[in-house]
Design a protein around this nucleic acid. Structure first.
Length: 317
DNA sequence: GCGACAG
DNA sequence: ATCTTGTCGC
């Protein structure tokens, strides 16, 4: 089964709609928690992203409609019942008792409406994705990409290494919040859009994030390679999941007993900075080859390719 | 009370 | 990632 980018965009649109509808349905005098909403969407780990999501819908509108929607966000509280100062008066006015900045959830909780489990659906796409075979990887047009954010806009930068480094840029508002494990839906969708806009077909893509080294074995790099049908490798600055086995210059990273990627020690930079880069296959590349290919590209490029793309995103004015 | 799950 | 504050779960 092949999923299309348009199908993904529909799911992302549904995410905002479902959240908006759910909050609108909360009755005066009742409260729910961020975790309740997240679970109803299919993944409690989205709880941390929800305050920002609610605020965005309320103040600016979701990225698809751009139309501010007045939401009773004061009816959403933390899982321990504590609330922000600005919620207190609004809740009291509705008959909800707030003592020492806290609501008694046993007394005031209301039920969550049925929501489309959008996050479960996204997880399903991740589990089912085609990860490609082991393709012969060419080095003639390697692309490194990174994304930066400012307010409600994003800048995608690509550095294309064919002869020298050609820089490409693309700007577009992100269509999804950052939720750990769902980075593709925030950042990757923008990168696919950028590649289409640029009209480039690189022979290999390197990105800031994981590939196979992911709870569902399908990180940003996996999806990106799939949607562009291009071999890809994830180059992350920190671990999302898994454990480094060993203390060598280059050590394998395991998850559930499976060898999914590599930790490559970075040169120490004056007592600061990250210790490792984490390399894992995206699409069309095996675990061993992901490391070999990454090291070869870094050598050819004369530096860390993803860091070059990162520097490009920082030149945004 | 404190650590945490890419960006 | 951005902002420099806030959230969840152990």
């Amino acid at each position: 089964m092949r999923s299309q980018l348009s199908e993904i965009k529909e799911l992302l649109k549904a995410f905002w709609e479902e959240v908006g509808k759910a909050i609108l349905s909360l009755p005066p005098g009742g409260v729910v928690t961020y975790g309740d909403i997240a679970r109803s969407l299919g993944d409690v780990s989205a709880a941390r992203a929800l305050p920002g999501v609610l605020e965005e819908i309320k103040r600016f509108g979701d990225p698809f409609t751009g139309k501010p929607l007045p939401l009773p966000t004061h009816r959403v509280v933390r899982s321990d019942g504590t609330v922000r100062d600005e919620q207190i008066e609004l809740l009291k006015r509705e008959g909800v008792e707030v003592r020492e900045g806290r609501v008694d959830l046993k007394r005031h909780s209301t039920s969550i409406p049925r929501m489309r489990p959008v996050l479960n659906e996204l997880k399903g796409l991740q589990r089912d994705i085609d990860r490609g075979g082991e393709e012969e990887v060419k080095f003639d047009s390697v692309l490194a990409v990174d994304v930066a954010y400012r307010e409600r806009n994003a800048r995608v930068c690509g550095v294309l290494f064919e002869k020298g480094g050609v820089e490409l840029t693309f700007h577009h508002p992100p269509l999804f919040p950052y939720i750990p494990g769902y980075l593709f839906f925030r950042e990757g969708v923008l990168i696919v859009m950028a590649l289409r806009e640029w009209g480039v077909s690189p022979s290999l893509i390197l990105l800031d994030g994981h590939g196979l080294l992911h709870p569902r074995r399908a990180g940003l790099a996996t999806h990106l390679g799939y949607f562009t049908q291009t071999p890809s490798i994830g180059v992350a600055k920190s671990l999302l999941t898994g454990k480094v086995k060993g203390v060598e210059e280059i050590s394998p990273v395991y998850l559930d007993g499976e060898h999914l990627g590599w930790a490559v020690r970075k040169r120490v930079v004056a007592g600061r900075g990250e210790k490792h880069l984490y390399i894992s296959p995206g699409w069309g590349v095996g675990v061993d080859d992901s490391l070999k290919i990454y090291l070869k590209v870094a050598k050819i490029a004369g530096g860390e390719p993803v860091e070059m793309a990162h520097r490009c995103t920082k030149r945004w004015r």
